[in-house]
């Protein structure tokens, strides 16, 4: 880009420019930026992994919708709940559930692996190693999952 100076436009420029009141040109230099393709993330595994991780939020929203429909069916009565259970056996829902489950697992793993970077824990002045923080997250996950499953299966 060529910046057009004031004198090139034929304006009067005071000799010794800077000593006078500063004047501004209406033209701002435009930086050269290469256009990035909309699909920049498709061609490298690291980028694709990032986008897949970000996209895991969609299955999260799907799960919440499903849960709210389930709660609605529960309060509607046995017939409504039987209908809900029947939908869940439909291949479309089974496929959606399976894909969503994989995405949510991906979210869980990436989230726990990132946790040690987000929370730096120090014990007696020494930084707790990353695998301990990630490991305690995984342990909590197992215990909580087992507890939830036990509560649901026992009922």
């Amino acid at each position: 880009m060529v910046q057009i100076a004031a004198d090139a436009l034929g304006c009067q420029v005071k000799p010794g420019g800077l000593s006078g009141t500063p004047s501004h040109t209406a033209y701002h230099p435009r930086w050269y930026r290469e256009r990035v393709s909309t699909y920049w993330w498709l061609w490298k595994w690291r980028y694709l992994k990032f986008v897949l991780r970000e996209l895991s939020s969609v299955p999260v929203a799907y799960f919440v919708t499903l849960t709210l429909v389930q709660v609605h069916a529960l309060s509607d009565g046995p017939q409504a709940y039987a209908d809900f259970q029947r939908w869940m056996t439909h291949p479309v829902f089974l496929t959606l559930n399976a894909i969503s489950f994989l995405f949510v697992l991906f979210h869980t793993v990436t989230w726990f692996n990132l946790a040690p970077r987000a929370i730096v824990v120090r014990l007696r002045g020494k930084r707790v190693p990353e695998f301990l923080i990630a490991g305690s997250n995984y342990a909590a996950w197992l215990v909580i999952s087992a507890a939830v499953a036990w509560l649901i299966l026992r009922s």
Binding site: V60, F63, T67, N97, S100, F101, V104, L105, H107, T108, W111, F112, A140, W141, I144, S145, V148, A149
Partner: peptide, 9 residues
């Protein structure tokens, strides 16, 4: 979401 959704789903 990381802790609870997998087991529910």
């Amino acid at each position: 979401a990381a802790l609870l959704i997998p087991v529910h789903l």
